[in-house]
Design a protein around this nucleic acid. Structure first.
Lengths: 223, 223
DNA sequence: TGCGTTGGGTGACATTGTCACTGAAGAGCA
DNA sequence: TGCTCTTCAGTGACAATGTCACCCAACGCA
């Protein structure tokens, strides 16, 4: 699964400003790995032993329950690092989060020794890693807040707008949306039908059209 | 609020193994702060500008909703560091978690400059900090799992056992338990009444006695 | 003893989750 | 064109949880 990319050290805040010498060394030590859309990047039975930085694509990190329900924790975008794997490596505890390549993905994996050396010697790299951790902690705080205190219709409206990425067409089954929010398909169906009755959206099989974004936004903001 | 403690560098995995020279320097640079039981250690309006290590006592970290509900995220015990403050310092995002001193607390605060230097120069210290982050990430994963997929009676049983710390007497109001789990007092009351009917516990005002721990444990494990 | 505060109980109703179904839309194929 | 299979969505009944508006009981204290 080895492939090549250009000088990826240019893509990361944590490596961009390193001296040329160090970056060349990194280019030599790191490996580039690819995943096809839909492939599992990491999971309970598949804990990588190196540190991962996402060069291109997007990874969806979600957690699943024993009963088969699922909730999306956050997404890792190009230029970010995926610290959850690191966290789990370090703490060696059981966990049931998994990362799925949401698009085709190219990632950089750095052997632990390189990572350690870099974290020790390069302030900007260390800062990058710390702030990656911080961001994920904050992401998770947000998830906890939503799940513990948020209303499902509000959360669904939010998610529809986010998944649309500015467009008005979303390709997603009710089941997929339920998996985003950690709820059941039936619940999503009910709420979407309500949205449709109120003229906020228009549904066809596997696809949702946002008809009234302003009002959806108002609903989403009423969190 | 300045006080003194002995050689606290002995208490932390991240500092215990440092050379004497470094530890002496730390003892000189760090400040010891105390909080009385119930005091807020940090919160949305009170973000410390230094790194905190807990020397004695316990801090309860919780998140609250606009509607006034609350949920406990995790507890910081002596010997651990409280990375959430660090995270928030770094990411400068709004958040609404707060830390309350659950007992009288003594903590070590390390100026950011000392922290940076230490993280750069001392492997064991850096490892300590990384693993502190990791542990909190894992803690939050657990919270998400519980809140998103767990049953309230199971979670309450779990929490009762945990709060008892091996004993059978718990001093806590229904409201306090609700704040542990991020639910409403009425829900806790209902479930506790059910527990009492089933002979699992015995309630008096502000106090709960665990009558049948084995069965509570069975319930808690049925997660 | 009376009174205010706090902790807890309760019923009605709204929201969300679960279960067991049904039916509808599309894909592939004779 | 029809047939069949799979996937996606709709539905009603019920359970669990959250919300609201109250009530009452226990305790602390003047």
């Amino acid at each position: 699964m080895k492939t090549t990319v250009g000088d990826w050290t240019e893509s990361f805040l944590g490596t961009r400003n390193l001296p040329r010498r160090v970056r060349d060394k990194l280019l030599h030590e790191a490996r580039v790995v690819s995943y096809k859309q839909g492939q599992q990047v990491f999971g309970p039975d598949n804990i990588p032993d190196s540190l991962m930085f996402l060069h291109a694509g997007r990874i969806r990190v979600s957690q699943s329950s024993d009963a088969g329900r699922e909730i999306v924790l956050y997404r890792v975008e190009a230029g970010e690092s995926c610290v959850l794997t690191t966290a789990c490596m370090l703490s060696e505890e059981a966990y049931n989060a998994e990362g799925i390549a949401e698009t085709d993905v190219k990632a950089i994996t750095l052997p632990k020794t390189s990572f350690d050396r870099l974290a020790a010697e390069e302030d900007s790299f260390r800062g990058f890693v710390f702030s990656a951790y911080s961001r994920r902690l904050i992401d998770l705080l947000r998830v906890v807040d939503d799940v513990a205190f948020g209303r499902m219709d509000v959360r669904l409206a939010e998610r529809l707008l986010a998944l649309g990425e500015g467009h008005s067409e979303i390709q997603a089954t009710h089941q997929a949306l339920a998996n985003e929010l950690g709820t059941a398909r039936e619940v999503v169906s009910r709420i979407l039908n309500d949205f449709q009755k109120r003229g906020l959206i228009l549904q066809t099989r596997g696809r949702i059209t946002l008809q009234n974004k302003p009002q959806l936004e108002r609903l989403a903001d009423s969190a």
